[in-house]
């Protein structure tokens, strides 16, 4: 049940917050150097980083549980043990991928 709630929260969160940010970013790039700089000022501020980390977690969480959906849609993974393992893995991998992403951004 937690996986389902997180899947919806992450998905709807990305739809309502992530998409406006995505379009803002594209419009800022299209608008020229000064509008891009204004976007980056917000994006790199403390609240911008909080939002971006939240969106990246939402992305990786939704992706992980979405891949789980594809497995279940094929009719696989309904045994109790297997199903439980997939659920736990999807939540953990969402967090692990988020940490790995930011570690790679900082280190690379």
């Amino acid at each position: 049940m937690l996986v389902s709630i997180l899947h919806r929260a992450a998905g709807d969160g990305m739809a309502l917050v992530g998409l406006p940010v995505l379009v803002w970013w594209l419009a800022a790039m299209a608008g020229g150097a000064s509008s891009y700089a204004r976007f980056m000022d917000h994006a790199m501020s403390w609240y911008g980083i909080v939002v971006l980390i939240g969106l990246s977690w939402a992305f990786f969480n939704h992706m992980s549980s979405g891949l789980r959906h594809f497995v279940l849609d094929m009719g696989a993974g309904y045994e109790l043990e297997t199903n439980k393992r997939f659920s736990v893995v999807s939540v953990i991998s969402g967090v692990v991928l988020t940490v790995a992403f930011w570690a790679a951004i900082i280190l690379l």
Partner: peptide
């Protein structure tokens, strides 16, 4: 509106 404006931005870019 969001998709339309986003597409306009990427085309303009």
């Amino acid at each position: 509106i969001g998709a339309g404006f986003g597409l306009f931005a990427i085309v303009r870019l």
